[in-house]
Design a protein around this nucleic acid. Structure first.
Lengths: 239, 239
DNA sequence: AAGTGGTCTAGACCACCGG
DNA sequence: CGGTGGTCTAGACCACTTG
């Protein structure tokens, strides 16, 4: 409603610039097209390159742009919808490794156990459209799954862990989503530099007597839109 | 900074700096404490202030720091868990305004109707611990709720709309979460400058014959962690 | 080799907060 | 007033991609 016309403090240049760029790319560019290079754009708008880059940073965070070193700045494709509900399709996941280690403080909190308790962990990468969109580490206390065979090759052991996990008497799940940045480990798995923004999804699997397992997933925030669909209510956005 | 000498591609300084700072603030600082000012920190680490700020930007995105103009940089409190399931507590919401307008392209897509169709909208701000943590705009096609009284004061009309919405025969909900930045409107409601990162939650309410309503919410990404099904056993087996 | 985005610097000025 | 973070500049060099 009446937005005050009086700006006691004029908006920063990079934000004005972003607004102009949003309009421009919505009206004059299509997915995959290349913007003029940063030096030209900065000159055209009469700002320093650093200021222009601040505006582009915003647009990249919104998923409107993709910047590729050595190539240029492109209009991004719409974000992929990544279903977070239980999925059967195992082939969209690639197992990375697994292990059995004492729980860190964070993991222990998610599992509702004491820090240091031994837990199994399986790390996977989620693939969509040929690219890595997310990582997941599943944690299950050894007490919950005591009979994981130890003599197998790592990939076989990981599969055994997942199979046992899927057989657990899970009664419910609770999830949380927050913003984070990819550290070295995740960044490598996502094939991106460290520091890229990610959506961090924490899932807790509850049984009758408490938490049976927990998973921490990171999804590329530039690429991905996490979807929580109730199976019956899926909407056909495709047309 | 004596780090590993041979990096095929040495990590950027700001990332190394972030790593150092993470360790420092985890070990030597508590919530609410104030870091040394940026100029001192930059000097201490032997980098330009802009580089130090790049590292602080990362930490702010992760919700570890809060920067206050004129005050300093503080260690942030842990993020608030914001339940996203249906809540009864209406008092945590503050109605802003409402209206009846043609659907924009985005809204139309969420509702599964054609752009331009008339829709009711109600805008609210979600308050937690005395601060605005999120905004929400609810959209319901006029066709679904044809009998909203038009002669009332705005606040009464908004309440009437919400009441009618809650009486709709909703059979299921599907949600999506993605990253965005707050534009002028949301930024004002959140009492923050434009451009702050937000988690954008899109909820679609489905009835038997299609989408009855949709809501677009934005939550401060620095502050908030969206939680789904906190109740522990809030299960909904798809059947 | 030429062109792109990514990083980094040194310095300046501004808006805000407190005493 | 002095101190803080926020913005902006002009320039430099690096890493990556393509021809």
């Amino acid at each position: 409603m009446g937005t005050t016309a009086t700006e006691s403090v004029p908006e920063p240049k990079y934000w004005q610039l972003r607004t102009v760029l949003v309009r421009t790319i919505e009206q004059e560019f299509h997915t995959g097209e290349v913007l003029p290079n940063e030096r030209d754009l900065a000159a055209r708008f009469g700002v320093a390159r650093a200021t222009l880059r601040q505006a582009l940073d915003q647009l990249e965070l919104e998923g409107r742009l993709v910047r590729r070193r050595g190539i240029g700045t492109l209009i991004a494709a719409p974000r992929m919808g990544v279903p977070v509900a239980e999925a059967s399709a195992r082939d969209t996941w690639r197992i990375v490794d697994c292990g059995t280690v004492p729980a860190t403080a964070g993991v222990a909190a998610a599992l509702g156990v004491e820090a240091g308790v031994e837990v199994h962990s399986v790390r996977r990468v989620r693939m969509m459209a040929g690219t890595a969109v997310g990582t997941e580490t599943l944690y299950v206390p050894v007490e919950i799954m005591p009979h994981v065979p130890g003599f197998l090759a790592e990939s076989s052991r990981a599969r055994a862990m997942l199979k046992q996990f899927q057989a657990l008497p899970i009664e419910g799940e609770s999830r949380a989503v927050e913003l984070g940045v990819a550290e070295e480990e995740q960044a490598r798995l996502l094939e991106r530099p460290p520091g890229i923004p990610v959506l961090v999804l924490t899932t807790r699997y509850a049984g009758e007597d408490g938490i049976l397992a927990a998973a921490v997933s990171t999804y590329r925030a530039d690429n991905c839109k996490l979807t929580f669909g109730e199976a019956g209510v899926e909407v056909r956005a495709a047309s």
